[in-house]
Nucleic acid binder design. Structure first.
Ligand SMILES: [Mn+2]
Ligand SMILES: [Mn+2]
Ligand SMILES: [Zn+2]
Ligand SMILES: [Zn+2]
Lengths: 161, 161
DNA sequence: AATTTAATCGTAATGATTATCATTTAAGAC
DNA sequence: GTCTTAAATGATAATCATTACGATTAAATT
């Protein structure tokens, strides 16, 4: 979604186009290929506008999220946000070092068959975490990634419940 | 994994079998069909042992997680833990109301083909969130679930990046 | 039983997020 | 362009989950 239609859409929903809001959206729009933290956003904008408050950033992020403009993901111990690179439903490869995302050509939902009796599906989450080519050189894999990597086992003997 | 082999395994890794540790593991083993929060765990155990500290619970949860005994997931604004219902790699349907999980007979990884050049895969996350049959009667769907449900779109026009 | 040191407790600190409320300002009416 | 009003903001404090610290307790080993 481009800048102008983004603002139009916000206005149609009754939100005001404030200076802060536009700055926040502009920065998000300049970073649609990666997840950023609220802290990153604040630190970036405070360079130009030292009085920008945390509260304003959080309020705007949540407004945008609740209106469906923002995706949220949590990894490496922090909640991260981004405006989707495109409105189409899709999933990502996520670099846990830089937060950069790569669009994936696969959604697992059509292949899922064993939905439990009476279970109402609301949403799903599919992300593949790793280290991107750029981050391979130089940076180390963070500790948390090693320890939380699930052990991959192939045989299946679980009594469903 | 049963209680005794669990304790054996901890001992082999050099951990002591303290009273607190056993109580924590026992409660987790009694709840392998759902995710619980640290708070739930503490509140349950403090009924019998009022001096149990947060620090002990968090330390134990992280020890268990780092040794690969515990799964972690975050939804509805809280981090949750559980001992896997079975050692086999698998994914879940998760009820966002009660935290109860249902084993899924599908892992999307084999179908993923477009891993970006140079990207090292470390882990993946696939969860289907919803409301279980039991929770359908009586409870409401939490606000956050409505607002964060991604819009499902079927056509694909995203310029990969 | 004595020794060793991991584990625990109580408490304080941290870090992210949320709440309050006085003040500012965008948007629409005149 | 000025006026009106309610949304948005900023400064500050509060809350919540999680982590850190140092003194004490208690598993495990001898
Ligand atoms: Mn999907
Ligand atoms: Mn899998
Ligand atoms: Zn990267
Ligand atoms: Zn449920």
């Amino acid at each position: 979604m481009q800048r102008e239609e983004f603002f139009e859409s916000l206005k149609r929903k009754g939100y005001r186009l404030t200076g802060r809001r536009k700055e926040i959206v502009d920065f998000l729009l300049s970073q649609t290929d990666r997840y950023i933290t609220a802290k990153e956003l604040i630190e970036h904008l405070q360079k130009r506008h030292p009085t920008l408050s945390f509260e304003t950033v959080y309020r705007n992020l949540h407004t945008l999220r609740d209106e469906g403009f923002i995706e949220e993901s949590r990894f490496a111990g922090e909640t991260r946000f981004r405006i989707p690179c495109c409105p189409t439903h899709h999933h990502h490869f996520v670099c846990i070092s830089c937060g950069r995302t790569y669009v994936m050509d696969h959604c697992p939902m059509p292949a899922v068959e064993d939905i439990p009796e009476g279970f109402t599906v609301l949403q799903h989450r599919f992300e593949i975490f790793g280290i991107c080519a750029g981050c391979r050189q130089g940076r180390e894999i963070p500790d948390w990634a090693e320890s939380r990597t699930p052990t991959e086992v192939t045989s299946s003997t679980c009594p469903k419940h």
